[in-house]
Write a protein that binds this DNA or RNA. Sequence first.
DNA 1: GTACCTGCAAAACCTTTGCAGCATC
DNA 2: GATGCTGCAAAGGTTTTGCAGGTAC
Lengths: 145, 145
Amino acid sequence: MTSDIQERLDWAVQTCSDRGLRRTNAMRHLLKELITSKKPKTLADLSESEGLRDLCDRVTVFRLLGRLVEKKVIRRLGFHERAAYYVFSYPDECNDYLVCTDCGKIEPLNIACPVETLEEEVMKNSGFSGLYHELEFYGQCPACA
Amino acid sequence: MTSDIQERLDWAVQTCSDRGLRRTNAMRHLLKELITSKKPKTLADLSESEGLRDLCDRVTVFRLLGRLVEKKVIRRLGFHERAAYYVFSYPDECNDYLVCTDCGKIEPLNIACPVETLEEEVMKNSGFSGLYHELEFYGQCPACA
DNA sequence: GTACCTGCAAAACCTTTGCAGCATC
DNA sequence: GATGCTGCAAAGGTTTTGCAGGTAC
């Protein structure tokens, strides 16, 4: 649904602006790239994507990613590859992944995440604030078996 | 309990040997270091630890870690730091962590992990085999707040 | 004796920073 | 006009590889 994408993009740009960032072209295109993508992307993926390749430098994308993570509009994932992965983070949406330990393929999981109730418990017991979680399953995919 | 550590060390060395690795001194000390440690450690942590510092080169530890991961005796964690973390992995033990997004402090979580039942379901639906999971909570620790 | 493991050195790779010029607010 | 953003260049740090020699089996 295009309208859904547009809605998310508008929300993201507005939120960034509210939190002190400038509305630049690079920002709009980077957010669009992430929102459109079904899978987490690396800095290399993003800076070489069609939408950004000729628009701005890789370092600009790098710094922009950092600002967007800081403003909690996107999320940085700690997968096992050497490069960091980034994914759009819509409020209260939980993204879990299934990763192949051989070929590195990443599949989003659409499951009822049982961790959310735990989050509150952990928050109470630990004193940590602003909690979110990251859940990944690793294994060998059928193609690699 | 020292006997518990010894038991794990024996299991680990034996398992490595069964899976084709040679019983080297570096292997024994690296495993001991990981088994004794309560927290995940980086390559730098390990190669500079008292047990390994004067025993072998950093590159040897690096290659050894790779072999141990491959033989499924230890596990590599994809935290958010630049360096990879490694942790001893005893069969059927699940290790979840609480990580501070500001200072990077890592705390092991001793909670009943609700994900284990999901693992089978994911395995069935996806066709992936040899599944395990990684669960981390991120937030701001009391000291950083 | 053979196959694997180790050390040293160096390459490869991704991330991060400095600084002068430009765009947004 | 002030502040933040961008590009280019270069540094920083971790991971990875080559090769000759040593070690476990």
